[in-house]
Simulated scan of single mutants.
Amino acid sequence: MDDLLATLKAAAETTRLRLLALCAHGELTVSELTQILGQSQPRVSRHLKLLCDACLLDRFREGTFAFYRLAEKGPSAELARVLVDAIPGDDPTLALDLERLEAIKRARSEAASSYFRENAGRWHEIRSLHVPEREVEEALVRLLPDGDLGDLLDVGTGTGRMLEVLGPRARRAVGVDQSREMLAIARANLEAAGLRHCHVRQADMYQLPFPSGSFDAAVIHQVLHFAEDPADVLGEAARVLRPGGRLLVVDFAPHGLEALRSEHAHRRLGFADGEITLWCRQAGLDCRDVVHLPGDPLTVSIWPATRLAGRAASPSVLSSTGATP
């Protein structure tokens, strides 16, 4: 009862209740919340700290930025949603806050679109070399179990496309990427799609910021060819999968297009089935029934794998991550 009263006390202030309502609509920084509320940054930061201490908000860092959103898990998460839902929809203060929030989201979207326009040629140039993305996406959907996917992870999410495709079937979906610019695009895309249960984080694919056994499914889509140590990426993805969890790896079959290495920073010119299967086995994954989608000149391969119960990744796979299986 004392904990409940302390949590209610943390929310029982006008500014803090406004912050809860705003953070229920997306991930926001201190500067964005300050802009919406029209209050000083130190004051807003103090309110945010109280809400985080009460486990009503989640805080996570992304480079030099800190983002806040309504708590997803824990004893206060459900209470946070109840409090937000209890705010009258016609409250004039909330209406103005949400109007300012929409202006910030539009600015985000415009900045993301501008970045994508400036760099889109790189993606279109590569996509023209292989089968249409829709064909790849349809194959991915067929390879995953029917119904609810549970908790989904997208490693190297980029613009968040895999979250858009698979997110509607997931209970919770998280995409990770090192590029802050790509994450800005992904956030705008997810907001436009209305996928509030899908989030993105800046993270290292060699050291995923999740406990072992956190996800039911994972996707590594067109990422391994950029990796210095592809086996370690697979090992880390396997670590965060639950027993029986499903991993889908999408990349190119071996090819000889050196321009992709010199002009598009590809570290590897495709992968043979045998090496992916070996790395999966070392990571405690059972890989079988590989799918090949021939293109001209690139063939896209999809390697489905399942996390075996009671199997840990070998030390060689996890050597560069420092992860514990």
Rank of each mutant, 00 (worst) to 15 (best):
Y115F: 15
D90F: 01
E102K: 11
K105L: 15
E99Y: 07
D90N: 12
L96Y: 09
R108I: 04
I87E: 00
E110C: 09
I104P: 04
R108V: 04
S109E: 13
V84W: 03
R108H: 15
H124V: 14
H124Q: 10
A95T: 15
R106T: 15
P92F: 03
D91A: 03
A103W: 05
N119Y: 05
E118R: 13
K105Y: 14
A107T: 13
L96I: 14
P88M: 04
L94F: 01
L98P: 05
D91E: 06
S114V: 07
R117V: 09
E99K: 11
K105Q: 15
E110D: 14
N119R: 10
F116W: 15
T93D: 08
Y115N: 04
A112V: 05
F116K: 12
Y115S: 04
L94S: 03
L101A: 11
R122M: 09
A111F: 07
E102G: 07
E102I: 06
D90I: 00
D97H: 01
A111T: 12
G121Y: 03
S113D: 13
D91P: 02
E102R: 13
K105D: 13
R108D: 15
G121Q: 00
N119S: 09
D91G: 00
A107P: 06
L101F: 14
A86Q: 05
E102S: 12
A103Q: 12
L101V: 14
S114C: 08
E110W: 02
A112W: 01
I104A: 05
G121S: 03
N119G: 01
A112E: 00
